[in-house]
Design a protein around this nucleic acid. Sequence first.
DNA 1: CGTTAATGACTGACCGGACAGTCAGTAAGT
DNA 2: ACTTACTGACTGTCCGGTCAGTCATTAACG
Lengths: 210, 210
Amino acid sequence: MDTTNPRRRRKQARPAELLAAALDTFRDKGFATTRMEDIAARAGVSKGTIYLYYPSKQAVFEALVRESILPNLARLEAIQAAASGSCADRLRLFVRSLAEATADARIFAIPKLVLTEAGNFPELARFYRQEVVARGLAMVAGLLEEGMRRGEFRQVDAGLAARLFIGPVMLAALWRSTFGAIEETPLPSGAMLDLHLDLFLRGIAAEAQP
Amino acid sequence: MDTTNPRRRRKQARPAELLAAALDTFRDKGFATTRMEDIAARAGVSKGTIYLYYPSKQAVFEALVRESILPNLARLEAIQAAASGSCADRLRLFVRSLAEATADARIFAIPKLVLTEAGNFPELARFYRQEVVARGLAMVAGLLEEGMRRGEFRQVDAGLAARLFIGPVMLAALWRSTFGAIEETPLPSGAMLDLHLDLFLRGIAAEAQP
DNA sequence: CGTTAATGACTGACCGGACAGTCAGTAAGT
DNA sequence: ACTTACTGACTGTCCGGTCAGTCATTAACG
């Protein structure tokens, strides 16, 4: 494939440019309300061009969701794989990475879109739950189980605890994306994270051995 | 007002019927995707009738959100006002009432709609945040502060802790409403609530006095 | 009573604008 | 000359909102 030719380079670059433009537009207006012309304009292209790369509006949306997963999830997994230390420390690291990712509106837009459109795109919802959510939860649950084996943590249901661990982080991101434009004083995310870690780790800590 | 006359009774009953139909339709398909005819059909009425009671689709949505608040929030506040016992016990009661309410798809549909449409209806979002979310958070924060004064709980930021307390409950409801139709084995809500209360109350409990 | 007029909740055909998707044409590159 | 990425005017459809008309009920009148 000739990648030095600017025209062919365009053709290679287009899909990513289009998805980036689609992401921004969907994020601002939601799926149903954005027009193909909006996406095209944002990508600096005419409406017809989109149809050279994606057969329909729905296809753009699905491609967007599918393409946006791997980079971020892989990054989280890489960070986690490289981590060492106590399970508590690795949980701290995980929640910080997750909070950082969800604080970026460009990243958090995807789960939010899946959330709002799951009813209209059940296949996509199923895909997302399996490929993203389940994997993320499994990472946390694995960490918790290791902590239990090591005696760092009490014995609890790891799957449930993983959800409880992630819940406040996701809710904070949702809060920002919902009320962020309205709110005068933003949530103190750092303080909230610290408190969450403090409460959770105390809550799950093994009883002190006498 | 003559309420015995069946024709006038209709006129009284219509708005509530229309809002109920609108709620179900919005819940299934989202705001942008539902057609006025869908709502009308569900209410057993023709499209024109809706416009005798509400001037626009947006007005239907706003009326729906505004009308649906007070009953449920008031119920929560009443339950809480009547409660006695330790702050921990009252937190348990609160979270159970909240979980029960959010488990009802007809009730949880409203916050979910606000969440997804906040961008398109900023005024409504502001209203909801002030009249519902802030009041709910204040209830929990007040309870936590009382617990701190009494020495039941450690000193922490009550506003943040209130969000952390509610986070998992809301996320569980969101999970159900997003993946509920897809999932084979539903979340064990009861067990999850118990674990959440267990972890949170341990996490916030005052250190045992020697 | 029986007849007629008035009321008003409700209907559904219709209008106009918006928008997803198409395709004949353009021009840049080789 | 030929390929090909791209354009944008055009089409068909869909849907929010309108409004002239229907019909059951009620009120007024003889």
